[in-house]
Design a protein around this nucleic acid. Structure first.
Lengths: 171, 171
DNA sequence: TGCCAACCGGGGCGTGCGTTCCGTATCGTC
DNA sequence: GACGATACGGAACGCACGCCCCGGTTGGCA
């Protein structure tokens, strides 16, 4: 790879990181190219599609989260709560995480699977009501994360969801 | 107003009702015109903008909900829960309600205000934790309603949110 | 230093949508 | 039954966006 190509690739990644974090996946690709100081064609030379660029930007961070979710714990209930807290914290600062849950990709699927595992283990020790499905949890998270970009209080929302999950099933 | 004009207006409203309920606000206006058996121009003869049509369709139903939210109750906690339940039920069947909360309009503002009133009264009798703001509640509802169109279990989600709202504030 | 391959930039294409315009058809009245 | 106002329909416009192409440029090796 030529030196200027590597330089431009890095500039594109930097700009994409900033803008995806700031405005989410919906930011126009031309805007990313503009901030990187290159043309749109250059972006497509390095990444075949917009989603590929998004994935390249979020991959490392999300993979770390997934790994931490998958490592065993002697307190599965606490592990789930901690994980949700970490996601809330992250989503409050950067807008791309909430899109990483939504935009179709292998990464998204792994994240859902990891959440499912956390949920199942928490349910097995009785820390979370058993009628909640992975799908329900993902939906809740999605709503919660998106809400954080509209002025809602992350901590309060998180507490509500967590204590809701822990509540016993209605008779 | 000419007879055919009235007929077409009704056909447009019917088609819009169906399609907004089925696919939400994002349904293309041409599709509404198509189902109504008229051209797009005809739609614009009766409604100045797509949002106006949306408002005309949702106005009656949402206004009813707002009215029921605003009438006094001797059990403010139960009133809030009942209202949330009614919204969840409605949103599970029709996709337009979740958009009515989001799409800017006077109707949306009234709905937010009504929710705020319900929340405040429930908090005054100690039925709901006091650190929840109207904004938080709206965010929660928004997330919950949108989740219902993705296979989540409405009843479970509602229970989680309700018991989360009722939980005492963390120390 | 010269040459070729790699790369760049941005103009342009295709698509989908909300909205508008205007020639034509239809309604209701005289 | 004819005429004017009213309404219709759909082609067309403007816009925004993802994506591609090509003439020009630049980098690195011989």
């Amino acid at each position: 790879m030529r030196a200027d190509a590597a330089r431009n690739r890095a500039k594109v990644l930097d700009a994409a990181r900033e803008l995806f974090a700031e405005k989410g996946f919906d930011v126009p690709l031309d805007e990313i190219a503009g901030r990187a100081g290159v043309g749109p064609g250059t972006v497509y030379r390095h990444f075949p599609t917009k989603q590929a660029l998004f994935q390249a930007v979020t991959e490392a961070r999300v993979a770390t989260m997934i790994a931490s979710a998958n490592e065993p714990s002697d307190d599965p209930g606490g592990a789930l709560v901690a994980f949700l807290g970490r996601m809330a914290e992250e989503a409050a600062a950067k807008r791309d995480l909430s899109d990483a849950i939504t935009v179709p990709s292998e990464l998204r699927d792994s994240l859902h699977t990891a959440l499912g595992g956390l949920l199942r283990r928490a349910q097995e020790v009785g820390a979370v009501r058993t009628d909640v499905t992975t799908r329900d949890l993902v939906a809740l998270m999605k709503g919660m994360l998106q809400s954080m970009h509209e002025g809602a209080n992350p901590a309060v929302l998180l507490e509500i969801v967590v204590s809701g999950l822990q509540s016993s099933r209605k008779p």
